[in-house]
Amino acid sequence: MKIQIINKYLFNKVYYKILFILFVIYSVPARSEDNSKINKPIKSRMYLTYDKLTDGTKVLTAKLFTKDGKIFTPIVNAPVCFSVENDTSTLELGIISTDKEGLALLYLSKHYQLPGNLGRAYIFHAEYSGNDEYIPVDGQVEIKDLLLDFKLAEKDSEKTIEITVNEYSSEDTLVPAYDVEIYGYVKRLYSLLEIGVEYSDDLGMTSIEFPGDLPGDSIGNLTVIIKVEDSDIYGNVEKIKDINWGIPVSYKETKTPRALWADEAPLWMIIAVIVILAGAWFNFFLAIFKLYKVRKLGKIRK
C-alpha cells in the first residue's frame, strides 16, 4: 500500500520532472545539429590561372575560396578536378586537393603532350563538385600555347634584350605572334623590378633596353625575367635567364672598423684607459708599499 503511494507519487511528479530535464538536455545539441543542416551551403568561388614556366612546364592554379564582405577565406582540402578540352575531345588531367591557402596546383611537364591540335586554343577546366557546406563551382581558361624566348645583344655599350614570341598556326607550324604585351623584369630581393614594357611587332619581335647601372651579385650576375602577363589569349608565360650585365657589388665581408659603435674600440681609447689606470694604480700600490714599511717598522720595535 505504502509502496504504491510512493510509486504513484514518484510517477506523478519526480518522474515527469526527470523526463522533462532529460528531454531538454538531449534536445539542445540535437537542435543545434539541426540548425547547421538547415544552413544553406555557402557560395564558393574559384580563380583558375595558367602559367607557362621558363622550362616549358605549364601550371594550372585553382584558388578556391569564399567571400564574406571583404574577407576572403580559402577552402582547404577540397578536391579540384582538372580537365582539358581541345576540338571535341575532353581529357581528365587529375584531381588535386587544395592546400591551406586554398590552392590546387597542377604541373604539366613540357614533355607531356596535350592531345589535339596545337594551333587551336586549349580550354582548361577546373571543377569543384562541392559538398554539404559549399556550392559547386568551376573555372575555365582558354589558352593558346605561346613560345617566348629572348637573347641579349650588346651594341655600342647599349644593352638590349631581344625578344621573340611565336605561336602555332592551324597547320602546326610556328608563326610570329604579334601585338603581345611583354614585360621585362629583373629579380630583386622581395619582388621583381620592372625594366620595360613592349608590344611585339609583325615579326613577333621586340626589344627592351637594359639599364646599364643595375647592380648584380658579386660577379655582376642577375636574373632577367621576360613575361607575358594576364593575357586573354596566352595566359601567363615567362622566360628566365641569368645574365652578366649587372654591376658587380662587392659582398666581401669587410672587417668592421674600430669605431665607437663597433665591437672593438678605437685604439687610442684603449691605450688612454690603460695608461690612466696604470698611472693611478701604480701610485696606489706605491702608497700601500709605504704603509707596509710602516707596519714592518712597527713589528721590529716590538
Binding site: G94, E101, L103, A104, L105, L108, Y112
Partner: peptide, 10 residues
Amino acid sequence: KSGLVLSAAF
C-alpha cells in the same frame, strides 16, 4: 606552396 607534380607519364 604545395601542389602536385605531373610528370610525362603523369
